[in-house]
Design a protein around this nucleic acid. Structure first.
Lengths: 340, 340
DNA sequence: CTGAAAGCGCTTACAG
DNA sequence: CTGAAAGCGCTTACAG
């Protein structure tokens, strides 16, 4: 195999000095003379030298790489979070190794092992849909690798960044009440996932705060899809006392609700209100457009990186820190029975 | 700094053998006895050993990491391509280092330098919007780092994976003609980007093939946005002889067209046809839904990885290979004047 | 079948 | 201000 990279020693040989000096000059070591630095830098440039970070990582014990574990990249949400992470990471001199789990527990474990093998300086992760065993993450902690969760977080003492689903859902439900809707239903996501559970709780709390008794029949357990929105709506409309508004756990569900209501010839928002959660790409463009809570995805990514960065730099002081990002109400047509 | 990883020598010491033997046993070297392998593997497991890939990369000259350079992650298209890439990469034992350029030339150059420093085994890249200088990519070639472009590719002799924009656009335009639309306009993207230029050419070719003379006034130069779709539509409607259908270079533009036509009280598809390109998330959910060409994004990612993999394994034989992925027509409501 | 030794390309404590 | 030397944790050609 032909050697195709210039090394420190190549430069040193060329300049009749040692690799140590070249290394110091290139990293602006204070004890190296300005003249030497200039000579070395000129030569490095001329020879097209690019430091081998593999070698420096091995020596220094620091890779300047973080691992980001996501359930799937085929989803604007995670793309947007990655955007938030990589941007900041890059500014702070970190590269991002990405691992997608396809929502599979097995691939999640594999990803963590890859990250450990790569000796990443830290990991940012969001749980796959069916992850119930956290042994792989405990392994990460045992190795003292800084770890931060975002969005879908386990019930462990590990720093994390989450959206305030409870208050966001409380707000959305209150908004539907304020708009004059009388019976407000909820189509949930899988309730064993913290994010969806929080939203369900926020919905319930808002009803309670308004002295509305909670009717279990008005809660349909969905699975984050247009279909479950449609199915849930059909179920809710079939009740003896059907609702006149639905707070959906996320926007695909909300879209399904809208589709079913159109099929059932029910006017939105005049006869029926819809409020979603996520602010997906399409929500703005449906007819009528969907009211929803924006998840501040880029912000979540940035906060996750900031938190990880602090832990990497300052050690373990932030062990149980939880950052809660406030969602932003985006009121569009689907919930506006009255004017604002 | 506390040492917190078990190494080969740790295992060797424990078992009274050498690191070389342990290394061979763990990698199933044929000359190692089954018994030794068993002992070593048991110890590795017990001590929770995870090979330091940084060290093995340095020694072997192979990192098993590929770099993926994308203009932005805040875009379902690139998320989906990443999905295609990472999935296959992971199956073949490669990790993915990702670098987002925010559509900025400077960050693109920085990303390439990072990849070179990280000694990635190969690079998959798509050009940022304003990249006109390719020196950083030529540098990659000079270092013999395998390189594959996808979607937005430069005019260089470098393997690439692209969508067949020409034939896709030809098909779409022909479809509008077949549906009985008489004057078909085009709102383009930036024409110096190959993908948008191809689509413009396909549109023209379809008109020619149908003996329709080309009217330059019917081509509006847009910039990939809802706004430019709306603006272009206003312009086209203001013509003495306005069109009755528009082929849009991509779906945001198509959405803008739809919005403007609604404002102008023009019925889609009865009075006016729209055909887009990309099959964005929202296109299915507008009213009426948008006909468009699906870009087969996951497929593109997979093909890009396959091509890169071949080059990594087999050397440079594929230097100028170009893979053309066929887009898939998705006919929805916005172009259906007649039935199908 | 296993060991001893060298080396990948850096960084850095120790000298001078 | 610069050099000589050791070592990060692996892999592998060479011996035996």
């Amino acid at each position: 195999m032909k050697k195709n990279s210039v090394t420190l020693s190549d430069i040193a040989r060329e300049l009749h000095m040692t690799a140590a000096t070249v290394s110091r000059a290139l990293s602006d070591h204070p004890e190296i003379s300005a003249k030497t630095k200039a000579i070395v830098k000129e030569a490095a440039q001329r020879l097209d030298y690019k430091a081998n970070r593999i070698a420096s990582s091995l020596r220094s014990g620091k890779t300047n790489v973080i691992g980001v574990l996501i359930p799937t990249a085929e989803n604007a949400f995670f793309g947007s979070v990655i955007h938030g992470i990589t941007n900041l990471a890059s500014k702070h001199g970190y590269s991002v190794l990405i691992h997608e789990c396809d929502e599979l527990y097995e691939l999640e474990v594999k990803g963590i092992q890859t990250f450990i093998g790569a000796r990443v300086d830290g990991i940012i992760a969001s749980l796959s849909r069916n992850t119930l065993d956290y042994e792989h993450f405990l392994d990460v902690k045992r190795r003292n690798i800084p770890l931060v969760f975002f969005d879908r977080v386990p019930d462990l003492e590990i720093p994390s960044v989450v959206i305030d689903g409870f208050n966001g859902s409380f707000w959305a439900t209150q908004h539907l009440i304020d708009q004059g809707y009388n019976r407000i239903a909820h189509i949930s996501g899988p309730l064993y996932i913290n994010t969806f559970n929080d939203r369900f709780k926020g919905y319930e709390a808002a009803l309670k705060a308004n002295n509305i008794s909670i009717d279990e029949n008005l809660v349909f357990n969905g699975n984050i899809s247009i279909d479950s929105g449609m199915e849930g709506t059909r179920y809710l409309l079939s009740l003896p006392e059907p609702p006149d508004a639905i707070f959906a756990a996320e926007d695909l569900t909300a879209l399904g609700i809208l589709k079913q209501l159109k099929l059932s010839k029910i006017q939105v928002p005049e006869q029926f209100g819809i409020f979603g959660f996520c602010n997906d790409m399409f929500s703005e463009h449906t007819t009528p457009s969907l009211s929803t809570m924006d998840q501040q995805t880029v912000c979540m990514g940035q906060e996750a990186f900031k938190l990880l960065y602090q832990i990497i730099e300052n050690g373990n002081e932030e062990k149980t820190r939880k950052i809660v990002v406030k969602p932003l109400p985006v009121i569009r047509e689907s919930s506006l029975k009255k004017a604002l």
